[in-house]
Lab assay of single mutants.
Amino acid sequence: MKTQEELTEIVRDHFSDMGEAATLYVQVYESSLESLVGGVIFEDGRHYTFVYENEDLVYE
């Protein structure tokens, strides 16, 4: 099982292909040891929320 830090790095790496991230945040109260819930805000103003669970990243 991966730590939240490892899950955060996986998510950060995925979003790095989409541009320069200004902020990546984790909603600790919705996350667990198995999943990471949060969002990313890019330098150009785009904002996505995400759920990373079971090696699957879903974002909108």
Rank of each mutant, 00 (worst) to 15 (best):
E6I: 08
V26Q: 01
D56H: 15
S16C: 14
G39F: 15
T8Q: 08
E5H: 07
L36C: 08
T23Y: 14
S16I: 08
Y48E: 00
E53I: 13
L36D: 00
M18D: 03
V37F: 07
Y48N: 00
T49H: 11
V26N: 00
E34C: 13
T8E: 14
V11C: 12
T3L: 06
S31T: 06
I10M: 08
V40D: 01
I41R: 04
L24K: 01
V37G: 02
S32E: 10
M18N: 03
D17P: 10
G45Q: 01
G45E: 01
Y25P: 01
F50W: 06
E60Q: 12
D13N: 14
K2D: 03
L57C: 11
N54T: 04
T23I: 14
Y48A: 00
E6K: 06
K2W: 08
G38Y: 07
E30M: 12
E55W: 10
V58H: 10
G45D: 01
E6H: 06
V11D: 01
L33S: 13
M18T: 06
G39Q: 10
V58L: 09
D56F: 14
D56C: 15
E55N: 13
F42M: 06
D13T: 14
N54C: 15
Q4D: 04
T23D: 06
V26Y: 05
E6D: 06
T23K: 09
V28Q: 09
E55P: 04
F15R: 02
E5N: 07
D17C: 15
V26E: 00
S35C: 15
G45M: 03
E55Y: 10
T8F: 11
E55C: 13
H47W: 09
E55V: 06
I41F: 09
F42Y: 05
F15E: 02
I41Y: 09
H14A: 11
A22V: 14
S32V: 08
V37I: 11
V40W: 06
L24C: 12
Y52D: 00
V40L: 05
D13F: 13
E20Y: 13
L7F: 03
E34R: 11
Y29S: 04
D13Y: 12
K2H: 06
Y48R: 00
Y25H: 04
V28C: 15
L33M: 10
S16G: 07
S35R: 15
G38H: 03
V37Y: 07
F42D: 01
D13H: 14
T49E: 02
Q27C: 15
G45R: 01
V40M: 03
Y52S: 00
E6A: 07
D44C: 11
V51T: 08
V58G: 04
E55I: 07
L36M: 07
E9S: 10
D13A: 15
Q27M: 14
E30Q: 09
Y59V: 12
R12W: 12
N54D: 05
S32G: 09
A21M: 15
E43L: 12
V40S: 00
V40E: 01
S31G: 09
L57T: 01
L7A: 03
V11M: 05
R12F: 08
E6C: 14
G39N: 05
Y25G: 01
Y59F: 12
D13P: 03
F15D: 01
Q4C: 15
V51L: 06
I41V: 07
A21C: 15
E20C: 14
T3E: 03
N54W: 08
D13M: 15
L33P: 11
M18A: 05
E43D: 08
R12G: 03
E30C: 15
H14R: 12
I10W: 08
V58K: 12
N54K: 08
E43C: 13
Q27R: 08
V26T: 01
G19I: 07
